[in-house]
Nucleic acid binder design. Structure first.
Lengths: 192, 192
DNA sequence: ACAGTAAGCGGAACTGGTTCCGTTTGCAAG
DNA sequence: CTTGCAAACGGAACCAGTTCCGCTTACTGT
């Protein structure tokens, strides 16, 4: 446990303003919204924005962290409701749909998954969710030996980079199917 | 067949100069080499560069097209030399190594694979190479039914976006293995 | 040779992300 | 309340890619 960061009052207020402004901007304009506009809308200089969020991708990540968390929380529920492989497929499809809905989110994800810095919480969260789906029961695993959640997450990240855009839902579905077969290995996948 | 483009003499000369300058720049500085420097080195304005190569990614693609072609030509040879699955794995690993060697090449590939424009030749070439590896014999296929070369290419593109950087060779290997299992489906993959 | 013209050219200007640094300010210790 | 100072701020400056447009030039038909 290293010392939890304590923000100065004004800093905290500005962070909130920035997140609100960014959320609004992304919702209306999409991820093309310029960093300068967001800062202006929040009544803050760009420098302030960058002190808090070292890159645009990390700002995007912060804005959508809640929704990603919700997505992750849904994993155990799915695992309890559906047969293991179906649960996994459903979750991955939800994930891709989410990435597709938020433009530019895929690039943010790449940073989060690639970066070795502080932002590993989100990555860990996602990996944990996937792990739940891979091993629904005690010691039971849907996955072939040697397949771990981190790698599946990376593969999913790759898919969202290639296929999380408007007219590519069907491609995404096929790539997820491919990945799914790669995970389980046996013939027990059952078509979509 | 629409009229083959015929470049004016000076335009052709400039294109050659640009490709040479770009190749030199990428080789020495990496893909971070600035477009302006390349143009200056070629003795040409940026406007000229952009008339020929509508984006930096497409310039990168053009510079490395030869090498990609060579990579694709190697596919039938591999298919003849090794057992089908090994050939496929080897080729994919060569591909990823290539992408990792040329910094910024992965992003260029994303454009090539995603774009619906003129630059489909390279994509078609790659898909064809993969197709050779997927179906080495007459009517015989390494792949499960429903798995096509285009999709495999996309998946490979995703992998290179996530794992074609310096210290990720092992991740790349694991992701390729995952993909490979997804392609063949049965247990006949045999570890790396 | 000459003129007309589409193709091509150059580089200033624009855009958007990121960095830098002189100034301001919240806060804690005296 | 004052003072000290690290934390935080703002926005000008910077740097890359990309666009725009007035000027130039290689080709074609006469």
């Amino acid at each position: 446990m290293r010392p939890r960061r304590v923000l100065r009052a004004d800093a905290q207020r500005n962070e909130d303003l920035l997140l609100k402004a960014a959320a609004a901007a992304f919702a209306s304009v999409g991820a093309d919204a310029s960093v300068k506009d967001i800062a202006r809308e929040a009544g803050v200089g760009v420098g302030t924005l960058y002190r808090r969020f070292p890159s645009k991708e990390l700002l995007i990540e912060a804005v959508y962290r809640h929704e990603v968390e919700r997505l992750c929380e849904a994993a155990p529920r799915l695992a309890a409701t559906q047969p293991p492989v179906d649960a996994l497929r459903t979750w991955m499809e939800n994930f891709i749909d989410f990435m597709a809905a938020k433009h530019g989110m895929a690039d943010a994800l790449r940073v989060v998954l690639t970066d070795d810095g502080e932002r590993m919480q989100t990555r860990a969260l996602l990996a944990e969710a996937i792990d739940h789906l891979l091993t629904p029961g005690e010691g039971q695993s849907v996955a072939r030996p040697g397949v771990n959640a981190q790698d599946v997450l990376m593969a999913l990240g790759g898919i969202s980079l290639m296929a999380a855009d408007e007219g590519q839902r069907d491609l995404a579905t096929r790539l997820i199917d491919l990945l799914l077969h790669g995970i389980v290995g046996t013939g027990t996948v059952a078509g979509a």
